[in-house]
Simulated scan of single mutants.
Amino acid sequence: MLRFIGGSLNLAELISFFRRSGKFEDFCKINNLNSESEVIEIYAIDPRDINSDLGFFPIENTEGQVVININGLKYYNLFDFFYFLDVINDVKGDEKISDIELAKRLLKYSEDDA
């Protein structure tokens, strides 16, 4: 499993990183992910909530599965990085929505609409 800078990372922290000018290529490099992968999917450890640890996996490894088991932990697909980065670009510079509120909205999206 890949972790952000050697530690756990939840959805609000991921949002904060990218809202504060984090770059996708840097994120991939830090986490030993191939930025040229067809798609990198964002998964959350069960139970899914805004504090759940995230995992980042290339679709070539997950084959688009909704649930994957890694080292005895069950991960649920939230959405792919393309969708996530589109949302981040839409709210960048908008201080009206907090990172936690955005995390809640994204989590709800993943449960209801994805």
Rank of each mutant, 00 (worst) to 15 (best):
I42D: 12
E63A: 09
N61W: 11
S21W: 07
I5T: 01
Q65L: 06
K104T: 00
D86G: 15
I70E: 10
E41G: 10
E38C: 03
C28I: 04
I15N: 01
I45D: 07
D86T: 06
R20W: 08
S16A: 09
N69D: 08
I15K: 00
S110V: 05
E101L: 12
K23D: 11
P58H: 08
L106G: 05
A114Y: 15
F17A: 01
I45Q: 15
G55L: 09
M1P: 09
F27A: 02
I42R: 06
D26I: 11
E60M: 07
E95G: 00
F56L: 05
L73D: 15
A44Y: 01
S8H: 06
S52H: 06
I15R: 04
K104Y: 05
G93K: 10
K108Q: 12
S98T: 12
L11K: 09
K108D: 05
F27C: 09
A44V: 06
F17Y: 14
N77Q: 04
S16E: 10
E95K: 10
G93L: 13
R19F: 11
Q65D: 10
R3N: 15
I100G: 00
I5P: 01
N34D: 13
N10Q: 03
R20E: 14
N10P: 09
E25F: 02
G7S: 10
G93N: 08
E41A: 11
Y83T: 04
K74C: 05
S110P: 07
L73I: 08
A12I: 02
K92M: 09
K29N: 14
G22Q: 02
